[in-house]
Design a protein around this nucleic acid. Structure first.
Length: 564
RNA sequence: UGGGGUGUAGUCAAGUGGUUAAGACAUCGGUUUUUGGUGCCGACAUGCGUAGGUUCGAAUCCUACCGCCCCAGCCA
């Protein structure tokens, strides 16, 4: 059999290979179980979409399930409100986790019990070293650490002290529970890692029940084991934690043996992905909020008009591997265009209007043309659009002194008005240097956009009837940063911010159909780009559109090449 | 100078001893077109971090070297 890879033959990523091997070796008893474990301390971004997609998709592919588990072990940083936003984003992407919605905080008492058991087995101890001392005792990357004086505290005393920690009898930072592993391990995570710390603050779910909270490294493997997670997928920076993960699983007394596998997180050109930097953009008002359409958050992308299908397609196209990578933003753009091309309703809108008077068209007449709603999908049907004596076209679609290869309207030249007539420019009215309106004649023979003589017309413009059109606002967005890796030159990502990343046009004219658009309807303004209604600022009286992404523009490229 | 990873095109990424080194994005040509969009056709690694070695045969195995990433939170 030859290796003619048909479309069904897609290469498997390393995680799928591991799973298939596990399945083959019969080491999985109850099916594949994965989990997406967000910490509810911020908004999800496109990088999370990769993790979400991997976890949910792999579970689905192997007929398993994917749990949603909030990793809420640090009440100092987390907020309830984020949970709803996170759930909304995951649902929006199209993934379902019910009834498997969990919280690490649900396991607090189980985790506590395991800690007590570890103490009893002499595998954990209460340490009263100060945070500074703990750091000193830990050693460095090249030097081993040394044992804490508290390391050999009698078990009974540890039990008592831990109980006191739990009861809130000690202040924050005065003591911690540590695992007794190996202070000379070359892996710093194994140098007696902290298991529990004192935090006398309320937790958004458990209230004041606890004054101690478990660390991630202790919580995560236990949570995975409790839930029967088979493959715990996380990003590369947790690689060094895997021995500790395994240590906890082994010593927890739990039956299940989940395993951790790491993959490279997503990096995208022209954007930042860290929660800290994203938060800074919001706080310092470089953007209007977490859902500013220029942000890489899922809520922003939704508002911008990116479809979940496009984002999911992107997460598949970038693959899953263990090498650090920087994905070209153009790939995301490609996925968005590819999806929207097949789904977006075509509409005519003039963003920068130039008035055109058709002199030989009767004063008070109007007629209606049929226009296709989507040439890629005849099933989308057609609609009627009105034509009259005075119309608007795009200012860019007219030039008084056109360069070579400009085949739009100019004096004496003929173009086609999409779906309507051919017009020829006969005159220009100016106010100083400004062209205020142009005059044209139309060819009645060209009705519908072609003539009996079959003559060729190079240019086709979109247009809108002046008296029938609706005013609206259009917001044009560009990438938020001008550098592939923001901050790579100066060390400060703000130095690479694109100060022209938003352009607001308030005098746009569009088909009246825009008033009837659903809030999640994607449209293509013909020859311009893909747009959607801005869910926050749009009103029926004055619709506001966000440009999702412009159409590819080979004329723009040509112009650059010709130096125009 | 400890430990753990990782290097295949401008960017992702398959490839696991014998293939012409997949595919996608980007780029560049051509073509179709009532969107300068879309579609279609073509070009794009004598080469797999480098140098040796093993082998009839190496991106794949071995050795050494080099680059890059992560780790010293009572964050996740």
């Amino acid at each position: 059999m030859e290796k003619t890879s048909t479309d069904a033959e897609v290469s498997k990523n390393f995680i799928e290979k591991i799973i298939e091997k596990d399945l083959e070796n019969n080491v999985i008893s109850n099916g594949i179980v994965t989990r997406f474990p967000p910490e509810p301390n911020g908004y999800l971004h496109i990088g999370h979409a990769k993790a979400i997609s991997i976890n949910f998709s792999v579970a689905k592919k192997y007929e398993g399930v994917c749990h949603l588990r909030f990793d809420d072990t640090n009440p100092a940083k987390e907020e309830l409100a984020y949970m709803e936003a996170i759930k909304k984003d995951i649902s929006w992407l199209g993934f379902k986790w019910e009834p498997h919605e969990y919280f690490a905080s649900d396991y607090f008492s189980a985790i506590y019990d395991i800690a007590v058991e570890l103490i009893k087995q002499g595998k954990a101890y209460v340490d009263t070293l100060t945070p500074e001392q703990v750091r000193e005792y830990r050693g460095t990357l090249t030097q081993p650490g040394k044992n804490s004086p508290d390391r050999d505290r009698p078990i009974e005393e540890n039990l008592e002290l831990f109980e006191e920690m739990r009861n809130g009898q000690h202040a924050d930072g005065t003591m911690v529970l540590r695992a007794k592993i190996d202070m000379s391990s070359p892996n710093l995570n194994m140098r007696d890692p902290t298991l529990f710390r004192i935090k006398k603050i309320d937790h958004h779910r458990t209230g004041d029940t606890w004054s101690i909270y478990p660390m991630y490294d202790f919580t995560h493997p236990i949570s995975d084991a409790i839930e029967g997670i088979t493959h715990s997928l996380c990003s590369l920076e947790f690689e060094d934690h895997r021995p500790l993960y395994d240590w906890v699983v082994e010593n927890s007394g739990l039956q299940a043996t989940p395993h951790q596998y790491e993959f490279a997180r997503l990096n995208l050109t022209y954007t930042v992905m860290s929660k800290r930097l994203l938060l800074q953009l919001v706080k310092e008002e470089h953007v209007s909020g977490w859902d500013d359409p220029r942000m890489p958050t899922l809520s922003a992308m939704r508002r911008r008009g990116f479809s979940p299908e496009a984002i999911l397609d992107f997460t598949e196209k970038i693959g899953v591997a263990r090498a650090n990578s920087l994905v070209d933003y153009a790939l995301l753009e490609h996925c968005v265009r590819e999806d929207l091309n097949t789904t977006a309703l075509r509409i005519m809108a003039v963003l920068d209007p130039l008035k055109v008077i058709i002199d030989n068209y009767p004063q008070d007449s109007e007629e209606w043309f049929e226009a296709e709603n989507n040439p890629e999908n005849p099933a989308a049907g057609t609609r009627k659009i009105p034509f009259s004596k005075v119309i608007y076209i795009e200012k860019d679609d007219f030039m008084e002194n056109p360069p070579k290869k400009y085949f739009r309207l100019s004096p004496g030249k003929e173009i086609r008005l999409k779906h309507a007539y051919y017009i020829t420019c006969t005159g220009i009215i100016k106010d100083g240097d400004q062209i205020t309106e142009i005059h044209c004649n139309y060819d009645p023979e060209s009705r519908g956009g072609s003539t009996p003589d079959g003559r060729k017309v190079k240019g086709t413009s979109h247009w809108v009837s002046a008296s029938h059109s609706i005013d609206c606002e259009v917001r044009l967005y560009d990438r938020l940063f001008t550098a592939e890796i923001p901050g790579s030159r100066t060390g400060n990502f703000l130095d690479d911010i694109n100060h022209n990343s938003i352009k607001v046009l308030k005098e746009c004219k569009a088909e009246s159909l825009i008033r009837e658009l659903a809030s999640d309807q994607h449209v293509q303004f013909l020859r311009t780009g893909y747009f959607c209604i801005d869910e926050k600022d749009s009103t029926p009286e004055f619709p506001v559109f966000n440009r999702t992404i412009p159409l590819r523009d080979s004329w723009e490229k040509l112009k650059k090449k010709m130096g125009i």
